[in-house]
Design a protein around this nucleic acid. Sequence first.
DNA 1: CAGTTAATTAACTTTTTGGTTTAATAACGT
DNA 2: ACGTTATTAAACCAAAAAGTTAATTAACTG
Lengths: 108, 108
Amino acid sequence: MTLSALADPTRRAILARLATGEASVSELAEPFDMSLVAVSKHLKVLEKAGLISKGREAQWRPCRLEAKPLRQVDDWLESYRQFWNDNLDRLEAYATLLQQGGTDDRSK
Amino acid sequence: MTLSALADPTRRAILARLATGEASVSELAEPFDMSLVAVSKHLKVLEKAGLISKGREAQWRPCRLEAKPLRQVDDWLESYRQFWNDNLDRLEAYATLLQQGGTDDRSK
DNA sequence: CAGTTAATTAACTTTTTGGTTTAATAACGT
DNA sequence: ACGTTATTAAACCAAAAAGTTAATTAACTG
């Protein structure tokens, strides 16, 4: 669920903003060319994904970034991190093959 | 676009499979309880996101995992990686505050 | 208490996504 | 040339996502 919450650019921008510190819903909404209601919904998505939490301070709901799910994404990436080093090795190996007269197209 | 491609569990499973080596479309489709056409579409999404590339070998299109976009996700996470260490510090600081008689609820 | 500010809920619309089935394309095997 | 295998394209559908406006809730301010 984390990754689908992160799929939306507005939500990523909100997280980026929150990385600099807490902010209320209307503060978070301000930069965007959309209704406050829309932003409020984005926040709910982020909240359900555990990426933010909301406090209450009078009529404000100060939002705070929660790092746990991001850390999970990082963990998920772990397996591929290993892979992309391998991949570089393979590319190198392939480059060598080419020198020796390889034929199949692996452009891109 | 990478993150929305990664948002779907079927597509993540496909990537996991591809991390173990190349596979044709039908091989990739086999584990899933959905039509081959559906899987083919997922592959197109992954391809457009640059997460995989397809070769051609006779009537097969061997798919290969491409690490670049994943590395970009990793880079994107970088800013937050720093944050989640800070966050742990804050939690510690807060725990200390509680000991001293803090009042506001920050459960979860 | 009346009015204002902050945020959410409800009802609705539009677009995107994830799936289907039925063709079409392309390369192989006989 | 004909049938089979692998994959994609087209047309379609249902459900989810992303947005809207109008109404509601809640807490502050004078």
